[in-house]
């Protein structure tokens, strides 16, 4: 569709910018808040800081150990995203391109799982990871974070792989590629948009995931992640609001960067799958 009238265009831009400003106002407020002093934060409703107070960032980065949490979070998120992408791509490929007995049942299960009431306690998960001897290790957190049905991602991969023309696969087989090599060297690289979608969405979820990392690191606080570290600002009798705002700003940035870098593929990814 094309919008032709110039005046209409300007009006649309004006509206989009105005709403956009209101849209991100809470984040502007947060960044401003990260420069305010604590008392100022609680008592005054005026979001503009009276002076630039970098202390909050030092406090978050050094005292609240955000430096250490940052590395943990990056490792955990990157590993989880990689595992989830691989798992979902494999499943999606099998479901999308091969006819095998039980395929329909598996598809039905994948969809059905989305509506199954989730577990409300973390204790069974902890017991499992504990049995594997993986509590208090980043690997245990990564494994627990990678679990789940990933219904949306599996379906995206399935429908995307199903649309790829048969000839591509045949040509690869002619070249002497087996099933596995065809997948890794020919088909998977074609699925970039879906990979980008999975990366972005899983990245967002894992990055801010809270309960699993908290409980799985109960006796090794140095393995904590940013979202968990945010709790360091909340005390029983007092909360370090300004430090929290600084911490929130620090943890928002990486996700924002990932999104900006990948957003083009992201939309394509969902679009490609929906064409089906």
């Amino acid at each position: 569709m094309i919008i032709t009238s110039k005046i209409v265009k300007y009006i649309i831009h004006f509206i989009l910018l105005l709403i956009g400003l209101i849209w991100i106002f809470p984040f502007i407020w947060m960044v401003l808040g990260s420069f305010r002093s604590n008392t100022d934060f609680i008592v005054s409703g005026n979001p503009i800081p009276s002076e630039l107070n970098w202390d909050n960032y030092t406090r978050a980065w050094v005292d609240a150990n955000f430096s250490g949490y940052f590395v943990n979070t990056v490792i955990m998120t990157v590993a989880t995203v990689a595992i989830v992408v691989l798992l979902c791509a494999l499943t999606g490929y099998a479901l999308g391109r091969v006819d095998f007995p039980g395929k329909k049942t598996i598809l039905a299960i994948v969809v059905g799982i989305m509506f199954i009431p989730k577990g409300y306690t973390i204790i069974p998960l902890y017991e499992l990871v504990d049995q594997l001897g993986l509590t208090n290790s980043l690997f245990g957190i990564i494994l627990a974070e990678s679990s789940g049905a990933h219904t949306l991602f599996v379906l995206l991969f399935t429908s995307y792989f199903a649309t790829l023309p048969k000839e591509m696969e045949e040509a690869a087989i002619m070249d002497g590629c087996g099933f596995v090599r065809t997948f890794f060297s020919v088909m998977l690289p074609l699925a970039k948009p879906i990979i980008a979608t999975t990366v972005i969405m899983q990245f967002i979820w894992t990055w801010s995931s809270f309960l699993v990392p908290t409980v799985l690191t109960i006796s090794k606080p140095e393995l904590r992640t940013l979202a968990v570290g945010m709790q360091n600002f909340v005390g029983q009798y007092s909360t370090d609001w300004a430090g929290m705002a600084a911490g929130a700003t620090i943890s928002l940035l990486p996700v924002l960067i990932v999104f900006i870098l990948m957003q083009r593929y992201f939309i394509e990814g969902v679009a490609g799958a929906i064409k089906q």
């Binding site: 095998f100 204790i123 069974p124 998960l125 627990a144 679990s147």
Partner: peptide, 23 residues
């Protein structure tokens, strides 16, 4: 195809189903 599905199935059955059943 079954081999490709296996890892996801193991991770899901192993780590997600048990907590759901337990609740």
């Amino acid at each position: 195809a079954y081999i490709f599905i296996m890892p996801q199935a193991i991770v899901f059955l192993g780590l997600s189903l048990y907590p759901i059943i337990m609740s």
